[in-house]
Design a protein around this nucleic acid. Structure first.
Lengths: 210, 210
DNA sequence: TTGCGAAACGGACCAGTGGTCCGTATCGTT
DNA sequence: AACGATACGGACCACTGGTCCGTTTCGCAA
């Protein structure tokens, strides 16, 4: 086992950086306005420490994102229906999309920072692959959707950070309204003959809020 | 009329810059690897000329994009069915989406450069507004889709440059395959009771190539 | 053709970014 | 206490988009 436990100042600094970055991204409007130097200063560490711990800017943002996303992930992977694996596709798909949407609503700046990294397309992030695979497998069990995952891509694209930001920020869409729209869209796609009519009508549960 | 005609060296340089940028973006893989200095040098002008003509990087890319898009735009605005205004929604929506997709396929790098500008969300570009409005108005005439334009956003998100890039570049999806997937998705969304079954089955017309 | 003011040019220049280097301080183990 | 390994930090680097201003070119008019 090549796992040598890291020094304790390293883990302390790592946590400090994560916390500082979280606060800065949450408080700032345009994510790219938060510089690495800002984060380092806010965390009370040198810039090199920050890069040593996370590799580069994308690495830091990704780590932050994954950390925040973790509760949602476990709820999906080992939770109970409608999010958990036991739920039938027609229930689970809307629940999953709603969870993703709520997460993006609750972590707008962070999601925006991650997807807007510029150089790296969001489609290469490891967590995207996972969401996509899960969704694709579910959709494969819905009659008439044998398109090899394209529908999954589109449904996830419906929750993209900049779109959410545009809806909420520019078009003055409210949280529940956004959830209802996504639910309606999903329902129409899933159940051409009617079927998912009572599963996704947005109640006010907030799967991923702080 | 405050329209003073520009000096001819200005228009010549503007054209040269546009052409150089077009070539560079088309030939390079990662659009952000094309720097403003590169474009200036390739065009044989100074950097300031480039900024004087287009304001900033986004302005240049946008100008290039609009120029390329122009034939598609006129085909949609004053062409004949199925793209033109005379076509009924159930035909025109798939045609329109197919046209957008083909355009993105034919101008991958450029579209990627535009949408990945970073600071500016794609949803604030003027041309997006136009596409969205057109699509929303069409969808409003389809029964059951009264969601105030959300579906239009999602359908356009299905043709986003980085998604297209991912499909074609990573998932090895072919051009016709991508078109067929989008057509199938659109058909399913439009015609839950069946209706758009024979309109969007991808033939090999290439609305925006060359 | 010549003259001249305005318009456009170009490349040195600037501010600010992500990312690295290396001498120094800290850790943790013996 | 001692000492090698590990991590620290901020000066430093390469490079970017964008600007400044002395110089050149244009277009009009005499």
């Amino acid at each position: 086992m090549p796992e040598r436990k890291p020094r304790k100042d390293a883990v302390r600094n790592r946590a400090a950086v994560l916390a500082a970055a979280d606060a800065l991204f949450a408080g700032c409007e345009r994510p790219e306005a938060v510089t690495m130097a800002d984060i380092a200063e806010a965390a009370g560490v040198g810039k090199a420490t920050l890069f040593r711990a996370f590799g580069d800017r994308t690495g830091l943002i990704r780590a932050l994102f994954e950390a925040r996303l973790e509760p949602v992930r476990t709820a999906v992977e080992e939770g109970e229906p409608p999010l958990g694996p036991a739920a039938p596709p027609l229930e689970r798909v809307p629940a999953l999309l709603d969870a993703v949407l709520c997460f993006k609503l609750d972590n707008r700046h962070l999601a925006l920072a991650l997807e807007g990294t510029g150089s790296d397309s969001p489609y290469q992030a490891p967590h995207y692959e996972k969401w996509h695979r899960t969704l694709r497998d579910l959709l494969a069990r819905v009659p008439g959707l044998d398109d090899g995952g394209f529908a999954a891509h589109v449904l996830l694209a419906a929750t993209r950070a900049d779109l959410v930001e545009h809806l909420v920020g520019q078009e003055r869409t409210g949280r529940e309204q956004a959830r209802a729209q996504l639910a309606a869209f999903t329902a129409r796609l899933l159940g051409p003959g009617g079927g998912g009519r009572s599963v996704g009508t947005a109640d006010s549960r907030a799967p991923a809020s702080g």
